[in-house]
């Protein structure tokens, strides 16, 4: 019994060390391209200003967006910015590369490594250029939420970060499911672009959409849980059952991605065969 725990700890340590190596390597690469970092930063800032401008068009003459006030809608925008930063930092560089492994046959080497292949392809690298976007998202969330009259008790912040974790897991799983299909359709990496386009719907509170889309964005493609639900939590408007539903969805999505990866791998025939 004791031996099993020790072994598990050893395994965890090994995975953490690997991850640290990967990511410090990524930071090293970043320093090679400082100019790009600056460009990315400006583009991100301009993009945020543009999004807030478009959002403001819905609020002329004291109107609201699906019953959400300007400040509350900004909180949603903040969560979108934060998750977009997560996508750019973590998901896109890693999961976007899967298609290259498949096309060039280098997935063989990944599969031969004595480490979980889903782990390897998911944390192989990091694009630190997205980190300022994450920071800006957090600032926007806190600022807009305080303007909207939210109270930052420990409980609220704790539940919000839990829900943020749920959003990240759902987002990761969606990306991973799409990315794993490249095992069959080598050239369809742009399926992730379709996903990105659809996820852009998360910039706005889900009640602003027509009823049919609301259902789709809650159940089929859980965009509501990515931005609207965390925003409701920090604004103190959410019901307990949505939180439980969120966790349930996140767990289901994660295990689906895991099952699907193993299923997809059983079809992998290497590049030259």
């Amino acid at each position: 019994m004791c031996g099993a725990t020790q072994l598990w700890e050893l395994e965890m340590g090994r995975y953490l060390t690997t991850m640290r190596l990967f990511w410090s390597n990524a930071f090293g690469v970043l320093l090679e391209y400082q100019f790009n970092f600056l460009i990315e930063f400006f583009a991100m800032l301009a993009s945020l200003i543009g999004s807030i401008f478009i959002l403001s068009l819905f609020f002329v003459e004291g109107q609201s967006l699906g019953g959400w006030s300007w400040e509350a809608a900004l909180v949603v925008q903040g969560f979108y910015t934060l998750l977009d930063g997560v996508t750019n930092t973590w998901l896109r560089p890693n999961l976007g590369a899967i298609v290259n492994y498949v096309r060039e046959g280098t997935l063989d080497f990944v599969l031969l490594k004595p480490i979980d292949s889903q782990f390897w392809v998911s944390v192989r690298t990091l694009a630190p250029t997205g980190i300022p976007e994450i920071a800006l998202g957090i600032v926007l969330i806190l600022w807009a939420a305080s303007k909207a009259g939210a109270e930052f008790s420990f409980g609220v912040l704790f539940v919000t970060s839990m829900m943020l974790l749920v959003s990240c897991i759902i987002l990761y799983s969606l990306w991973f499911l799409i990315a794993a299909t490249t095992i069959w359709f080598v050239k369809t990496w742009n399926a992730t672009e379709v996903l990105r386009a659809l996820l852009a719907a998360g910039r706005f509170p889900v009640v602003a959409y027509p009823p049919i889309l609301r259902i789709i964005f809650t159940v089929l493609l859980p965009i509501a849980f990515l931005t609207t639900v965390p925003a409701e939590v920090i604004l103190g408007q959410s019901a307990t059952y949505t939180l439980l539903l969120g966790w349930l969805l996140a767990l289901i999505a994660f295990f689906l991605s895991r099952i699907f990866w193993n299923f997809a791998l059983s079809f992998y025939t290497s590049a030259s065969s």
């Binding site: 002329v60 109107q63 672009e193 386009a197 659809l198 719907a201």
Partner: peptide, 18 residues
Amino acid sequence: LSGVLPFIMLTLWSQHDG
């Protein structure tokens, strides 16, 4: 398909009371 953004915006604008 990845160009659906205008349609998403359309659903928002047409739903918008103003």
